[in-house]
């Protein structure tokens, strides 16, 4: 995981920091981590991609797996720090229409602390 840390808890939210690359099935570690936090009762999950250089179709599939699990728990998922190349990929596959995307982790955190400001 990036920044030598996997996650950061912030109140009732958790921020996950994925690897530099989410391009093979090793990326499922991120999905496993989500499972752990969902099991612990966290329902607001921010995935910060500021350290992620590449996401491919496998990464997209893993992201959809994560999104589905969070939706099943009636939780909230937000993306932040997406580089342009990754933002484009998420746009191509339609994820950006369904998941709120923020420039920074702080912006995403500000929004989850005030849920009614969410655009969805």
């Amino acid at each position: 995981m990036g920044k030598n840390r996997n996650y950061r808890e912030a109140g009732d939210s958790v921020i996950l920091y994925p690897e530099n690359y989410i391009n093979d099935i090793e990326g499922e570690k991120l999905e496993d981590m989500c499972d752990i936090f969902l099991a612990r009762g966290f329902k607001k999950i921010i995935i910060d991609f500021s350290e992620t250089d590449l996401i491919n179709s496998i990464g997209v599939s893993i992201m959809i797996g994560i999104i589905e699990k969070i939706k099943d728990k009636k939780g909230l998922i937000l993306f932040s720090g997406l580089k342009k190349v990754n933002h484009d990929i998420f746009s191509i596959v339609g994820l950006t229409k369904h998941i709120p995307v923020f420039s920074t982790e702080k912006e995403a955190l500000d929004v989850v602390s005030c849920e009614d400001r969410l655009p969805m």
């Binding site: 179709s57 496998i58 990464g59 997209v60 959809i64 339609g94």
Partner: peptide, 12 residues
């Protein structure tokens, strides 16, 4: 991996 690639391509 192949399955994930297909699913990722179609957002399935």
């Amino acid at each position: 991996s192949s399955l994930y690639m297909v699913m990722g391509s179609f957002s399935a």
